[in-house]
Write a protein that binds this DNA or RNA. Structure first.
Length: 472
DNA sequence: CTATGGCACGGATT
DNA sequence: AATCCGTGCCATAG
């Protein structure tokens, strides 16, 4: 049976095709990258063409010419996002991005590249080129808890730069996911986390003092003493402590991701984003740029020499070679299809969740996978597969699971958080339910309790009777 | 007596 | 078909 490698049908041709497309769709870009590499080394029919780059910005491309950002037509509606495949292989290019300068340290390469690469990617755009060695040095000096093992002074001394510059770089790093990474002590990590957390949700004012002044009491769970020190009751002290342990992590290296703060999910793969969303400008009408990380896209092809050689293949090898050829063609086609699906999906999704992407949690609209599948005219399970286990990087640098864009209750939970943060006296669940109802979120009282629990907020009677004012 | 958490059920989602 | 989520009912703590 001949392989119709020229055919560009978007519809699966064979059951094998179908099955493989399904499997590929579930893979993370990093996993796909590994799979392709495995295939490349075992299958001689497959080869890697030269990388194509944009003539202007040198971004890696899937097709020749200008990248979609550089070539974008001048007047496009803001709602229309720019979506394109970005064939970068992330962890590979980690060293690429640092080069230009000499690498300060050999152990930078393989050993613990997951966490450093993950963090570096988040700050890559803001980081001045001359600060890269500093960032690299810091990131490669982390222990498994994500804490710094060297002093800033040593680094400054090593590069002969002012301490303040190192501090600046560290500050950028600390504010990346996992928040607090690179801190020198657990205490410092907690402080950074509090700072970041306070931007998106209310934080008990005393938590800051508790961390700053009473770390030892916190770790010993000495709540009565803690209460006395802070001038509040034991119950309130316990609440603070619980808030801290629920929402903060003194060892940022053992990261959880996103906002979730449940049990230590030791998901071993740090998440390279599969999709990167950024803004073209600061204005609220900005067009969004969506990069779909698709390793080797456009660079993978069937080795023409192999195809020629096949004609004169020794008889005993002919079958095997033919199989190689078919396998390679199939893989390429499946990858194309995977990318195509993801592009279409993101294209639509970004439009639907534009508000959320730009303005944060409160603006998430509850989109279901089913409804999206319907619009795209694909099967629900296709969307499900494409969404599961992938991560997306938002313009603000946060990396969250793609499934968060399908969260049905996040916007209600943020409304709830907001209500509680503004309460002058603790409101009962029933009362909160009423308030939510007035805002257009009809939820049962019982559900309020569930949301509270999810957010690590204690029941009304354990909350502070009235806001305690502290020196900020 | 009121406010909450636990358990379990049914419908929606995956 | 399996799972998740919102909700109602009931026991319990304050």
């Amino acid at each position: 049976m001949l392989l119709q490698s020229q055919t560009h049908s978007l519809r699966p041709l064979t059951t094998a095709h179908l099955a493989q497309t399904m499997t590929l769709l579930e893979l993370t870009s990093a996993e796909l990258c590994q799979k392709i590499e495995a295939e490349l080394s075992s299958n001689p029919a497959l080869e890697l063409a030269d990388q194509i780059r944009c003539r202007h910005c040198h971004r890696r491309l899937a097709q020749t010419g200008l990248c979609p950002v550089c070539s974008r037509p001048p007047n496009v509606a803001a709602e229309q996002p720019i979506v394109f495949l970005s064939p970068r292989e992330d962890f590979r290019t980690f060293s690429d991005r640092l080069t230009g300068e000499d690498l300060p340290d050999d152990n930078l390469m393989v050993a613990e590249e997951d966490l450093p690469a993950y963090v570096l990617r988040q700050i890559a755009t803001e980081l001045a080129a001359e600060d890269r060695p500093l960032a690299a040095h810091i990131l490669t000096s982390l222990d498994e808890d994500g804490l710094l093992t060297v002093t800033l002074f040593e680094i400054a001394h090593f590069y002969h730069v002012p301490l303040s510059r190192v501090e600046n770089v560290l500050h950028m790093i600390q504010r990346c996911e996992p928040v607090g990474v690179g801190s020198e002590t657990p205490q410092q990590a907690l402080l950074v986390q509090l700072e970041v957390l306070a931007e998106t949700r209310p934080v008990p004012p005393l938590a800051l003092r508790a961390v700053r002044e009473a770390m030892d009491l916190l770790s010993r769970r000495a709540y009565p003493e803690l209460g006395r020190l802070l001038g509040v009751t034991t119950a309130q002290a316990a609440y603070i402590a619980r808030f801290i342990s629920n929402n903060l992590n003194p060892f940022p290296g053992r990261a959880h991701w996103g906002e979730s703060h449940d049990s230590p999910d030791s998901n071993p793969t740090y998440h390279n984003p599969d999709v990167i969303i950024s803004c073209l400008s600061q204005s609220p009408e900005t067009q969004l740029v969506v990069e779909i990380v698709a390793p080797y896209a456009g660079a993978l092809r069937i080795n023409p020499l192999f195809r020629e050689a096949l004609a004169q293949a020794p008889a005993e090898k002919a079958d095997q070679w033919q199989a190689h050829l078919e396998q390679a063609g199939l893989l390429i086609k499946c990858i194309q299809q995977r990318n195509h699906t993801i592009v279409r999906l993101m294209q639509r999704l970004v439009v639907l969740q534009r508000e959320f992407i730009l303005f944060g949690d409160a603006h998430l609209s509850p989109v279901t996978r089913a409804s999206l599948a319907d619009e795209l005219e694909v099967h629900e399970s296709t969307v499900s597969r494409a969404v599961s286990s992938k991560a997306v990087q938002l313009p603000n640098g946060r990396i969250v699971p793609l499934s968060k864009l399908f969260d049905r209750s996040l916007h209600i939970r943020t409304a709830l958080i907001q209500i509680i943060s503004q309460e002058t006296q603790p409101l009962s669940d029933t009362h909160i339910a009423d308030l939510l109802d007035k805002r257009g979120f009809p939820v049962a009282r019982r559900t309020v309790a569930k949301y509270r629990a999810m957010e690590g907020i204690l029941p009304a009677r354990f909350r502070q009777p009235r806001p305690v004012f502290t020196a900020k």
